[in-house]
Computed example of a mutant assay.
Amino acid sequence: MSAAGFADWMRSVQSGMEQALAECLPAEAALPQELHAAMRYAVLDGGKRVRPLLVFAAGALFAASDAELARAAAAVEMIHAYSLVHDDMPCMDDDALRRGKPTVHVKYGEATALLVGDALQSQAFLVLAEGTGDPARKLAMLRLLAEASGSAGMCGGQAIDLASVGLALSLEELEQMHRLKTGALLRASVLLGAWCGKALTPSDTAALDAYAAAVGLAFQVVDDILDATADSAVLGKTAGKDAADNKPTYVSILGLAQSRALAEKLRADAHRAVQPFGDQGLRLRQLADLIVERQS
């Protein structure tokens, strides 16, 4: 599988996800129309779809069907989109730009933005609960996504992030925050994709866990690097906001050179974790490369 093959595969997944998300979201014409329009605005026509790509790459290792993978990927992406809507609100990071366009609260107002996040979270679990598959495994998937999204995962990490503004965190404290805030949902993406297919062995789960831990942390390290080095037009969101808000980051603790070195180490860790899958793990390795090499 070549680099060109990876690019084609990635575009295929991204295109398919746009259609799947459009079908999984409530129709804009259905009441309440403004809420549904805002939900679709928050989710569609934007983003790299890294989490769906991880779902599909992991699912391919275990012969998962595209239909079930699309459902799991849509659920994860809706959780991610809801988190961005809430994260951008004035009570959180107070940002006006996301994915190159006005944030939801800027376009639709704060009250609607709050409801958009709430509704997307509910819609994610509705979508994941539907479809075929073993009921016991479906229940495990719902539990995994709930844990990754709640106080033991993404929301917990965001709470620590908000409480850490202006504080001098240790590297270990910063890592713990981001393993929750960013890493938990990326791990859920990998495992949900795998669980859409045949049963995993304990060694399969250990390898995927190690991979997810590495790419989850790498994603945040690169985010911190880009916030410090890229401009808003490239990022599609406000650059330099972490420093302006006095937030602890990998760059503020380690500096740029060591942060880049850490990202490379995590890339190598991710590659090593999926070695047991041989050539079948290539897509996961390529996604680790994408996460580390991205410019936005």
Rank of each mutant, 00 (worst) to 15 (best):
G46C: 03
R49N: 05
R49C: 02
R49E: 03
V50N: 14
V50S: 14
V50Y: 15
L53P: 09
L53G: 07
L53S: 12
L54S: 05
L54E: 01
L54W: 03
V55R: 09
V55I: 03
A57M: 07
A57C: 07
A57S: 12
G59L: 06
A60S: 15
F62W: 04
F62E: 04
F62P: 00
F62C: 01
A63M: 07
A63R: 10
A63L: 08
S65M: 03
S65I: 01
D66E: 15
D66G: 15
D66L: 10
D66P: 13
D66F: 08
A67P: 07
A67R: 13
A67C: 12
A67V: 13
E68K: 08
E68C: 09
L69A: 06
L69E: 03
A70P: 04
A70D: 05
A70Y: 04
R71F: 01
A72P: 06
A72V: 11
A72Y: 04
A72M: 07
A72C: 11
A73N: 00
A74W: 01
A74D: 02
A75W: 02
A75Y: 03
A75V: 03
V76R: 10
V76D: 01
E77W: 06
I79V: 15
H80E: 00
H80I: 00
A81T: 10
A81H: 04
A81P: 02
Y82H: 11
Y82G: 10
S83V: 09
S83M: 09
L84W: 05
L84G: 04
L84K: 05
L84P: 03
V85W: 13
V85Y: 13
V85H: 11
H86F: 00
H86G: 01
D87C: 10
D88W: 01
D88T: 04
D88L: 01
M89L: 10
M89V: 01
P90C: 09
C91M: 14
C91W: 09
M92A: 13
D94T: 08
D95T: 15
A96M: 14
L97W: 14
R98G: 02
R99C: 02
G100F: 02
K101Y: 12
P102F: 07
